[in-house]
Amino acid sequence: MKRTPTDMPPVAATHVRENDPRWVRATLIAITVLFLGIFLALPLASIFTEALRKGIGVYLASFRQPDAYAAIRLTLLVSAIAVPLNVVFGLAAAWAIARFRFCGRNVLLTLIDLPFAVSPVISGLIYVLLFGLHGWLGPWLNEHDLQVIFAVPGIVLATLFVTFPFVARELIPLMEEQGSEEELAARVLGASGWQIFWRITLPNVRWGLLYGVILCNARAMGEFGAVSVVSGHIRGLTNTVPLHVEILYNEYNFVAAFAVASLLALLALVTLGLKTAVEWKVRRDRAESAASREGSTP
């Protein structure tokens, strides 16, 4: 039995079954619309309403401040470092875990998941305990004039921690499901490890990988709690976009706060749009490969 990996919603059901009684259908649809409307659409709408309260001119002016600009640049830099590092890790971990059985595999899986359930406050705290002036490495760093926390490296590390599981978690079930027949065949034909990876594994998982990258990136750009602990909040220097939103909010500049927040909400929407596109592509690829397989083996 073929299973779609988790998190990959099969939107366009191949066969939508509507054999439930009309009233059941109507009730369930009503509940769904209401529930998602109240919990998801309303918060989203409120952000844009608040942001546009004083008109589009004020809205756009919020982005022209140098501090907003610096925050956006820092956020882009942080995710540009954190996402590729986690992609490399995700690929390595998925290869080791999905292709081999070994002792401690389940513990490794759980450890990979751990950052996902750890409170962001703790994620920040651990780096303070490690790199703070009174932490394990702090005195040494201080002597060598290296600043880790309250500077960009600390923000990158906290972001790495928080987004750690995303790519790996996406790839592991996907690669397990796909099985290693193709790779084994290539091995028998004499392909090297790198060749197998570049020609077979990577093309096979590319959409799942992209999906993981998209989620990882969204989280990297949006992380608040952990980054807030290690940032130091220096204006124009160590404030990421979510922190800048908080600052504006605390300056009673609600319109600008929601305007910058709407940027992140827009990012979320673009993320969701990309994700839907990726899913659509995956399904089409699947359908095609299924069709061609059926065609070749009558």
Partner: peptide
Amino acid sequence: MKNRSLTKGLAALAAATTVSIS
């Protein structure tokens, strides 16, 4: 490829480290 992007990341980290105390 792994090593290269790791070094790149570390280089960026190092660059960022020095910028903040100049």
